[in-house]
Computed example of a mutant assay.
Amino acid sequence: MVHQVTRFSDAFSAWENWNLTNFDSKSECVLAFKQALDLTQPPLAAVVSYHIEQASTLLAETHELVGPTGETNELYTAGRGVAVVIQNDQSNQAQKSVVSQLTAALIAGNSVILCSDDAEFCKELEAAYKQSSLPTNLVQLASLDAYHQLLESDVRSVGYVGNPEVELSINRQLSKREGAIVGLVSETDLAAIPVAHDPHLSLRFITERTRTINITAVGGNATLLELGSETH
Score class of each variant (00 low, 15 high):
N163V: 07
S186V: 00
E165Y: 13
D189Y: 08
A196P: 05
P164N: 00
D198K: 12
E187H: 09
H197Y: 14
L168F: 13
I193T: 14
V185H: 10
A192F: 11
V185P: 06
H200Q: 15
I193A: 09
D198M: 08
A196K: 01
A191F: 09
G162R: 02
A192R: 11
G179Q: 10
R177E: 11
E165H: 15
T188F: 04
L168E: 13
S186G: 01
P164Q: 02
V195G: 04
D189W: 06
V182Y: 05
T188H: 05
E167Y: 03
T188Q: 04
E187K: 06
L168V: 03
N171Y: 10
V182M: 00
R177C: 06
K176I: 05
D198T: 11
V185S: 07
N163T: 13
S186Y: 03
A191W: 07
N163H: 14
V195N: 04
E165F: 15
D198E: 15
P194G: 13
I193P: 09
N163C: 10
V166W: 01
A191D: 12
V166N: 01
L184Y: 03
L190F: 08
H200L: 13
R172G: 11
S175F: 13
G162Y: 07
S175L: 12
V195M: 13
T188S: 05
E187R: 06
A191H: 10
A180N: 07
P194W: 10
R172E: 14
A196G: 05
S175R: 13
D198Y: 15
A192S: 15
K176V: 06
G183V: 13
V166G: 00
E178N: 15
D189I: 03
V195R: 08
S175G: 06
V166E: 07
L184P: 05
A191Q: 14
L190S: 08
E178T: 11
N171F: 11
V166I: 03
Q173N: 08
P194I: 05
H197D: 15
A192K: 15
E178G: 14
E187I: 03
V182E: 02
L168P: 01
V182G: 02
E187V: 05
G179S: 05
P199N: 10
P199T: 08
S169C: 07
P194Q: 09
A196R: 02
N163I: 06
P164M: 00
L184H: 03
V195H: 06
V185G: 03
V166D: 02
L168M: 06
R177M: 07
P164V: 00
N171Q: 13
P164R: 01
E187C: 02
K176L: 14
S186K: 00
K176R: 15
V166L: 06
L184S: 01
A180E: 10
V185N: 05
L190Y: 10
S175N: 12
P194A: 12
V185K: 10
L168A: 10
E165N: 14
G179D: 05
E178Y: 09
D189C: 04
H197Q: 15
A196E: 01
I170D: 00
D189R: 02
P199E: 10
G179E: 07
P199C: 12
I181F: 09
N163A: 12
A191E: 14
V166H: 06
V185F: 11
T188M: 06
G183M: 12
I170R: 01
P194H: 14
I181Q: 12
I193L: 05
